[in-house]
Design a protein around this nucleic acid. Structure first.
Lengths: 241, 241
DNA sequence: GAGTGGTCTAGACCACGGT
DNA sequence: CCGTGGTCTAGACCACTCC
């Protein structure tokens, strides 16, 4: 059942095991084993079991009712994975569309005051500035201009961006993870440049999205302004808690 | 320091205490007391201390580094509270604006297939339908049409909505909490009716937002379509994890 | 090796929901 | 009353970082 000699923590093993149990064998709103039953069944302490159940609760698989028990959430099957991510690449893959990104500009620039302020660095500090077009099944969907601070991503190059998504470069090559991202939305009209890049009619309606991403130390690691096509691409967001 | 006879759990008391410590006395990125120091200082077990620190980490106040210690997050002061909520009322209060809501329509209706499907009930089931205008400092900002299922909110009346925000009615009168909300955004043009209600020019640009709210059992408790003024009202969203 | 956070145990008592 | 989840203790050992 669980392998006490594995390097994988017991509670993680239990999470996987219970997710399987829930999605394979249990009905929504059915009662799960009680915590103490799970302890006995898998020979684990209650602390470990509660750690695992807490994770499952955060993931939305179960809910608890004090005095009554633990229950399987409704509709977790359908809504599972649907949009936990704030990555264009992941999002498109979940929609079964082939994501593609074209980097149309990449340069190292000193920052003017406005953007230096939002990135939380001094005016004139260096940053990478890039322009990218995002495609879904070869249809252009968004145009993005991003700034990321040089001091956190030294010797980032355009070649690295060809190989894998930006957030994978962040994580794998620079050990930077997005912990929090704030976004602001506005309706707008595309500029001529934008409508050409996105192959749409002039003056097309669009969403303008500004994103600030922070690592877990709350340092901003990315500032991006996106223009999203309005009709073909639905922008979704999930709030939790 | 902490009151062991209080009905408030020790870890909650510790959370409050440490938030205070962090926001009053500690610099961003400074090292906090180690877990074992906190145990000793407040005479608590390590489990309890770790529970509290876990909460603080989720709230974004601190981050941990295995083997090094626990540190205060950057910029938590500025960004504190700024937009943890998905309630118009709370959001406006945080911006120091006076929120007001006018209910312009309220009725009990049988649901047609389309909306019955999104609410997860049978066609023809009853729901409350309401139209509301949201004001900030007496300036109209949004127009919303909401559907909420009758079986979860029996004998809801317009009078209840006069007294307090919808989500407080949900929580206090029906013990329903929003655990997850999914939103979809689109740029759009206001209809004549909408531009009149929001006192703006005809054909004004606007954001159209569709929201589905779920309780912790993952049952949808609200379906709302909003039209938001584009210029005076910035729509913000925060992603976590 | 010393100090840190990460995982885990085997208990205990409390508060809540039902009988 | 019993069974449930919620809180809490006093330990133990591991994995990581730094010196």
């Amino acid at each position: 059942m669980v392998d006490k000699n594995s390097s994988v923590p017991l509670y993680s093993q239990l999470v996987d095991l219970l997710i399987n149990e829930i999605t394979e064998n249990l009905e929504p709103n059915s009662k799960m084993m009680s915590e103490r039953e799970i302890c006995e069944r898998y020979d684990l302490s209650r602390t470990t079991v509660r750690l695992a159940l807490g994770e499952l609760e955060n993931l939305g698989y179960i809910y608890k009712q004090h005095g009554k028990g633990t229950f399987v959430s409704e509709g977790i099957r359908d809504r599972k994975n649907l949009l936990e991510s704030y990555s264009f690449t992941d999002y498109m893959r979940q929609l079964n569309k082939e994501p593609k990104t074209m980097v149309v500009a990449f340069e190292e620039v000193p920052l003017y005051r406005h953007i230096a302020q939002v990135l939380g660095v001094r005016e004139g500090e260096l940053a990478y500035r890039m322009e990218r077009i995002r495609y879904a099944d070869d249809v252009p969907m968004m145009f993005e201009v991003s700034y990321i601070p040089e001091y956190l991503f030294k010797s980032l190059s355009i070649e690295m961006l060809y190989k894998k998504p930006l957030y994978e470069v962040f994580r794998e090559d620079y050990r930077q993870d997005v912990a929090v991202a704030d976004e602001e939305f506005a309706a707008s009209i595309m500029t001529d440049k934008e409508s050409k890049l996105l192959e749409t009619m002039t003056d097309a309606l669009c969403l303008r999205i500004q994103r600030k991403s922070y690592n877990k130390q709350n340092i901003m690691i990315e500032y991006t302004v996106s223009v999203a096509k309005n009709d073909e691409f639905v922008y979704r967001v999930r709030h939790s808690r």
